[in-house]
Simulated assay, not measured.
Amino acid sequence: MNQKAVLITGCSSGIGLALAVRLAKDEKKRFMVYATMRNLAKREALEEAAGRTLGSTLEIKELDVCDENSVKACVDSLPMRRVDILISNAGMGMIGPIECQTIDEMKSVMDTNFFGLVRLLKEVLPDMKKRKSGHIVVISSVMGIQGILFNDIYAASKFAVEGFCESLAVQALRFNLNISLIEPGPVVSEFERKVYEDGLKIDLSKADKVTADMFTNIYLKNYNQIFQSFGQTPEDVAEHTFKMITMDNPPFRHQTNHLYTPMTTLKYEDPNGDLPIETFYKMVFEHDKVFNASLNFLKLLRWRSRKSFSLEKDKNAS
């Protein structure tokens, strides 16, 4: 069986790195993985994880999803420009009150998370249509179907991704193409650590006292605990994605975290949209003790089942 050419973006760490390695180490050697990143100076972690697959079933290439020329140059460098499976993973996060974020910062998130995907598809979709074969896999988020407190711009970018793909999926069927949205909940990775650390540095002077207090003493205070309770590892998400890629008829949407599913289900239970908003409000402001107790219970279960992990870097590490 011929190998499938897989192009993955955002492979310097996290889900992209884990997924590139998982596919490259496939026992059946079904994939030739082109793992890309914006800055090749950050390739060391991927090289180490790839091991013997490097130069065999995995190659590392430069690709900046915010640069059309970079996207084209990368695709042009592939044998016959062929991409059988495109995995759009590169992303940018941002948390905090919108009063404290600049429009340029917001545009950067949209440019990476939404237009980055659009640039990739403009380059690879025409060839997939000609061949009438291909699988477009997008690492989205549960925040692409349900907004979360102080993730306004990030959620907006993922909502855009979901709407774009939902529209495109109808056209894709005509060309025998598959589109799959992978929707993780919290994932403990360098991506999330950076978002958290940037959140700690936000200048809250432009926010009113109530909003600043909500962000600092409710959102940030519970951030790490939420990830410890609900969080997956990048390897967990990579395994889910691997299964989607190897399915004959992959679904359009797939949530990777069953612990988070009841929260997203609220949105579909109420066509008016009030139920999830009111539920989250009550959890945060009226039943915060019950919410924290639930988090502690989930955290305990996870601690018993595997080593606990944290968004905070190991203080003993050199």
Results as ranks from 00 to 15, higher is better:
residue 2 N to H: 13
residue 2 N to P: 07
residue 5 A to C: 08
residue 5 A to M: 08
residue 8 I to G: 03
residue 9 T to F: 07
residue 11 C to F: 08
residue 11 C to P: 06
residue 11 C to A: 10
residue 16 G to F: 15
residue 17 L to Y: 09
residue 18 A to V: 10
residue 19 L to C: 14
residue 19 L to M: 14
residue 22 R to I: 02
residue 23 L to R: 11
residue 24 A to T: 09
residue 24 A to F: 09
residue 26 D to L: 15
residue 28 K to Y: 11
residue 29 K to V: 05
residue 36 T to M: 08
residue 39 N to W: 10
residue 42 K to T: 15
residue 43 R to Q: 14
residue 44 E to N: 14
residue 45 A to P: 01
residue 48 E to T: 15
residue 55 G to Y: 04
residue 56 S to V: 14
residue 56 S to R: 12
residue 57 T to K: 04
residue 58 L to A: 12
residue 58 L to M: 13
residue 62 E to V: 05
residue 63 L to H: 06
residue 63 L to W: 04
residue 68 E to S: 05
residue 73 A to T: 06
residue 78 L to E: 03
residue 84 D to V: 09
residue 88 S to D: 14
residue 88 S to H: 06
residue 93 G to A: 01
residue 98 I to H: 04
residue 100 C to E: 00
residue 102 T to Y: 00
residue 108 S to E: 06
residue 108 S to A: 07
residue 112 T to D: 01
residue 112 T to Q: 05
residue 112 T to A: 03
residue 115 F to T: 12
residue 121 L to S: 00
residue 126 P to D: 00
residue 128 M to G: 03
residue 129 K to W: 02
residue 129 K to L: 09
residue 132 K to V: 13
residue 134 G to Y: 05
residue 137 V to S: 10
residue 139 I to Q: 00
residue 142 V to H: 07
residue 144 G to D: 01
residue 146 Q to I: 10
residue 147 G to W: 00
residue 149 L to Q: 13
residue 152 D to V: 15
residue 155 A to Q: 06
residue 157 S to C: 03
residue 159 F to H: 15
residue 163 G to L: 07
residue 164 F to S: 02
residue 164 F to Y: 09
residue 165 C to W: 01
residue 165 C to E: 00
residue 166 E to Y: 04
residue 166 E to H: 11
residue 167 S to E: 04
residue 167 S to H: 04
residue 170 V to L: 11
residue 173 L to R: 11
residue 181 L to G: 10
residue 182 I to K: 04
residue 188 V to I: 08
residue 188 V to A: 05
residue 193 R to G: 07
residue 196 Y to P: 05
residue 207 A to D: 08
residue 209 K to A: 11
residue 210 V to F: 11
residue 210 V to P: 00
residue 211 T to I: 12
residue 211 T to Q: 11
residue 212 A to T: 08
residue 213 D to S: 13
residue 217 N to H: 11
residue 219 Y to A: 00
residue 219 Y to E: 01
residue 221 K to R: 04
residue 226 I to L: 01
residue 230 F to P: 12
residue 231 G to C: 00
residue 232 Q to F: 05
residue 235 E to M: 09
residue 235 E to Y: 03
residue 236 D to T: 06
residue 238 A to W: 02
residue 243 K to I: 03
residue 250 P to M: 14
residue 252 F to I: 07
residue 252 F to N: 06
residue 254 H to D: 02
residue 256 T to C: 12
residue 257 N to P: 01
residue 257 N to E: 14
residue 257 N to M: 12
residue 258 H to M: 10
residue 260 Y to E: 09
residue 264 T to I: 12
residue 266 L to S: 08
residue 266 L to P: 13
residue 269 E to N: 12
residue 270 D to L: 00
residue 272 N to C: 06
residue 274 D to C: 08
residue 275 L to V: 04
residue 281 Y to M: 13
residue 285 F to W: 10
residue 285 F to V: 03
residue 290 V to G: 02
residue 290 V to T: 14
residue 297 F to P: 02
residue 298 L to Y: 09
residue 301 L to T: 10
residue 303 W to H: 11
residue 311 L to T: 02
residue 312 E to S: 08
residue 314 D to L: 08
residue 318 S to P: 15
